[in-house]
């Protein structure tokens, strides 16, 4: 399977070495988004506003870590390094992580989490729908499974956005503020970088910019039902995650996540 997909990508772009690197870099971006967001969502356990929501957050976190593990394992098998999922998660440094800034931000209040989830799931919904037609058979299989999961995540965030927006005055204000908080991180989800361009050219990936209109329109529908307004565009926008240039919270996240295996090199867990 892996050699097939490598060939597909290589043939389409005409250069195995570059195609391989862009291909795997693109995949790592998908996996890192999923892992880092899974990590942040797992932090909600015991902090959710009701026990039922602990259950829901955990389910979403588990879906995402599952996506990350599948993609890491696949990357390790095709990038010539034979790295395991744990090599990729625990032994890369911050500059090698390719996730967007949105997912690495510290856990805020429940409204902020629902705003982040709404955008991220809207993005992932379009992403995995498109990747369900990828030329990379392995990625295609992962996308078909993940699409069912992220549709549920989107529904969950939308249900809550509507309840918070059209709930009490306090919840409305908090949800509106959350949309303002999340706004500067949204553009990065839909920014094309060299790797996504190469992956899209090869028929492996999809250009993030092509996913923006549908996601924005889906979110706009939710906001309308929630009696919320789209926030004014922010002056600054997060950028650089796909090239490994992150925001300050990322270092702390990795320090916490990676410290144990790195304290015991060579140990198995």
């Amino acid at each position: 399977m892996s050699s097939d997909t490598e060939t597909t990508a290589a043939t389409a772009t005409g250069g195995p070495a570059t195609a391989g690197a862009a291909h795997t870099a693109y995949l790592l971006g998908l996996a890192d988004d999923a892992l880092i967001y899974s990590h942040r969502l797992s932090e909600w356990l015991t902090w959710a506003p009701m026990l039922e929501e602990d259950m829901a957050m955990a389910n979403i976190s588990l879906d995402l870590i599952g996506q990350a593990r599948s993609i890491y394992t696949y990357v390790g098998s095709i990038d010539g390094t034979n790295r395991t999922e744990d090599d990729l998660a625990y032994w890369r440094d911050e500059r090698e992580f390719r996730n967007v800034h949105l997912v690495e931000q510290r856990r805020g209040d429940f409204a902020q989490e629902m705003a982040r989830m709404l955008w991220f799931a809207a993005y992932q919904k379009g992403l995995y729908a498109a990747l369900s037609g990828s030329a990379d058979a392995q990625l295609r299989a992962i996308a078909v499974k993940a699409l069912k999961e992220v549709r549920y995540h989107y529904d969950h965030a939308a249900q809550w956005a509507v309840r918070l927006g059209d709930g009490t005055g306090e919840s409305h204000d908090k949800m509106q503020a959350a949309l303002t908080w999340v706004a500067p991180y949204v553009a990065e989800l839909f920014s094309d970088d060299a790797n996504s361009v190469a992956a899209a050219d090869a028929g492996v990936g999809v250009l993030p910019s092509t996913l923006q209109a549908a996601a924005a329109s889906a979110v706009a529908d939710v906001l309308r039902e929630a009696t919320l307004e789209a926030p004014a565009d922010s002056r600054w926008h997060a950028r650089g995650g796909r090239e490994g240039v992150h925001s300050e919270p990322m270092g702390y996240l990795l320090a916490e996540m990676q410290h144990l295996p790195r304290s015991h090199p060579g140990a198995a867990w």
Binding site: M55, A56, H156, Q159
Partner: peptide, 16 residues
């Protein structure tokens, strides 16, 4: 399950 309304109740039941 407890839920604020039936729509959320189905979801809570699914997760539990």
């Amino acid at each position: 399950v407890h839920a604020p309304d039936a729509t959320m109740a189905v979801r809570n039941a699914r997760d539990l």
